[in-house]
Design a binder for these strands. Structure first.
Length: 207
DNA sequence: GACAAGATTGACT
DNA sequence: GTCAATCTTGTCC
């Protein structure tokens, strides 16, 4: 799955489960929203301008975790995918908490509901306890601190796409994917995202 | 060495 | 709906 380019791997990752273990702690969540970032042809990607100390993980093998600090405050997690050297990645934007929910609340004191625990890139990292120390870990190793599990695949008809969020370049590309109608997707919700609105945007679920 | 921008979040009006 | 917080990274001189 992760051998695919980000644009194809992103929707395939919906429904997969991200699991973080820290000592006796085990927290996991189902991926409900992602964004695809190519490198060579994507001005919005961190790797667009080439390899740097920060984004080096993106140029490595698929299946590794790329963690970076956003706005000096939050951590954001990406899954590296595609061929080595192409620096493609899929940003995880939102999770549906599964295991270890009780342990997540202390790390998310501002959250009021379970749908608020991991409904954003920075939120999900806080909820799962992901930080800079997890940058570069192998998600497929099996015994690492962060693992990617198959979970329940989502049918193409259940996937909606839309423009990416919070970026200033290449904003027109509909490379944001989410599970239709899922209440855990992050804000802002374009038409077709979130509960109560299952009408997919004009672009359709695939591209 | 200095400066500007940023894949966000939450508080406040 | 608007805006401030906060600091790392990358670029420019």
């Amino acid at each position: 799955m992760l051998a695919l380019r980000p644009l194809h791997a992103a929707p395939a990752l919906l429904g997969a489960v991200l699991e973080v273990t820290s000592g006796p702690d085990r927290r996991s969540g189902r991926i409900v929203e992602v964004e695809a970032y190519e490198a060579a042809d994507d001005p919005a990607s961190h790797a667009y301008r080439g390899r740097t100390p920060r984004n080096g993980v993106m140029f490595g093998p698929a299946g590794h975790l790329y963690v970076y600090r956003s706005y000096g405050i939050h951590w954001c997690a990406n899954i590296v995918c595609g061929p080595i050297g192409e620096a493609g990645a899929v940003l995880i934007r939102a999770l549906e908490p599964l295991d270890g929910v009780e342990e997540m609340w202390p790390d998310r004191p501002k959250a009021r509901t379970s749908t608020d625990l991991a409904s954003g890139p920075g939120k999900l990292c806080a909820a799962l306890g992901i930080g800079g120390e997890h940058d570069g870990v192998d998600l497929l190793a099996g015994d690492g601190p962060v693992r990617l599990l198959t979970g329940t695949p989502v049918e193409p008809a259940g996937v909606v796409d839309g423009p990416r969020i919070g970026i200033t370049r290449a904003v027109e590309r509909p490379w944001r994917f989410a599970i239709a109608g899922n209440p855990h997707v992050s804000r802002p919700r374009p038409p077709g995202f979130g509960p109560g609105d299952r009408s997919a945007p004009a672009t359709g679920p695939h591209r």
